[in-house]
């Protein structure tokens, strides 16, 4: 048997040593954390509700403005309507008087209720 002689060489770690064993989890950063998102959403919602509240107050004021603009016009429109209603009422009464002139003791335009309170007529003309 012929012995092959190779120079003796001790197996050694590579130069610079072995690299560290990868035992840690290697996960990339996946955006802001849960607390940050929760806080952000809460802040956004809070701001939204703040704006909503402001908007409600403003809407209320706009409604008040609109209502008062109409309230201020009520006397004017009512006065005009009243004159027209009075004119029609007088005309209707004159017509009734003319039609019922032969009936004794007929009072034209007399209310059918035994009450002095004003009662608007149920119909404006007999069609």
């Amino acid at each position: 048997m012929c012995a092959v002689t190779t120079p003796y060489r001790q197996d050694m770690p590579p130069a610079g040593g072995f690299e560290a064993v990868k035992y840690k989890r290697n996960l990339p950063v996946r955006g802001p954390g849960g607390l940050a998102i929760l806080g952000g959403v809460t802040a956004l919602c809070a701001y939204g509700f703040y704006r909503l509240g402001k908007g409600n107050v403003e809407k209320r004021e706009l409604q008040r403005e609109k209502t008062w603009s109409r309230i201020h016009l009520v006397p004017l429109l009512l006065a005009e309507g009243d004159r027209d209603a009075y004119r029609r009422q007088q005309a209707a009464q004159a017509r009734e008087k003319e039609i019922m002139k032969d009936v004794k003791d007929w009072e034209a335009g007399k209310s059918v209720y035994n009450n002095p309170r004003y009662q608007p007529s149920e119909y404006i003309v007999v069609l």
């Binding site: 006397p75 004017l76 006065a79 005009e80 309507g81 009243d82 004159r83 009075y86 009422q89 004003y118």
Partner: peptide, 13 residues
């Protein structure tokens, strides 16, 4: 009654 406030109504108008 419309007849009641004609005077005041004219003033308004």
């Amino acid at each position: 009654d419309p007849a009641h406030c004609l005077k005041e109504g004219r003033r308004v108008t």
